[in-house]
Simulated assay, not measured.
Amino acid sequence: MVPRRSAHMTIMVTAAQKAAKRLIRDFNEVEHLQVSVKGPSDFVSQADLRSEQVILEELDRARPGYGFLMEESGKRGSENWAWRWIVDPLDGTTNFLHAIPNWAISIALEKRLPDGGSEIAAGLVFAPALDEIYWAEKGVGAYLNDRRLRVSARQDWSEALFATGIPFAKTAPRNRLAFARVLGGLMPETAGVRRFGAASLDLAWTASGRFDGYWELGTHEWDVAAGILLVREAGGYATDPAGHDRVTGDVVAGNPHLQPRLRELVAEAMGAAKA
Rank of each mutant, 00 (worst) to 15 (best):
R150A: 14
E119C: 12
D131L: 05
T206W: 00
D131K: 06
H98M: 04
G77P: 09
G77L: 08
D88L: 02
D91A: 08
R174I: 14
A129L: 12
L229T: 15
I55L: 03
D42C: 04
E137C: 06
A191T: 06
R263A: 10
A199C: 12
K75Q: 12
R174K: 14
R148V: 07
S106A: 15
A99S: 15
G39H: 01
E264N: 10
G74M: 03
E52Y: 01
E31L: 08
D202G: 13
A172D: 14
G227H: 04
D115G: 08
L201Q: 12
I105G: 00
F27S: 03
Q46I: 02
E189Q: 14
H257N: 10
G165A: 11
S73D: 11
R150Y: 13
G77H: 11
T239C: 13
E137Y: 05
G139Y: 08
V2M: 12
E137P: 10
I11V: 13
A16E: 10
P260S: 11
G141K: 02
G77Y: 12
D42Q: 10
I55F: 10
Q17H: 14
V193S: 06
L49A: 02
A129S: 15
G213N: 11
K75N: 14
V251C: 13
N80G: 15
A16G: 07
I11M: 13
R174L: 15
A180P: 02
E268A: 15
G227E: 04
A136N: 10
L201V: 02
N95C: 01
H244F: 05
G92D: 02
S78I: 10
W215E: 11
A82H: 14
Y143H: 11
V54Y: 10
D131R: 11
L265W: 02
A267R: 14
H220I: 07
A178K: 08
I55C: 01
Y214N: 09
D146Y: 02
N28R: 05
V30M: 06
P188W: 00
T219D: 11
I105K: 00
P256L: 05
W222T: 06
V54K: 06
G141W: 06
V140P: 15
N80L: 14
E233A: 02
P128H: 10
S78H: 12
V252I: 02
L258I: 09
P256Q: 03
R246M: 09
P167Y: 11
F27L: 03
K75S: 11
N28M: 04
A198E: 02
H8I: 06
V30P: 05
E72V: 02
N145I: 08
P260V: 07
S106K: 09
G254P: 00
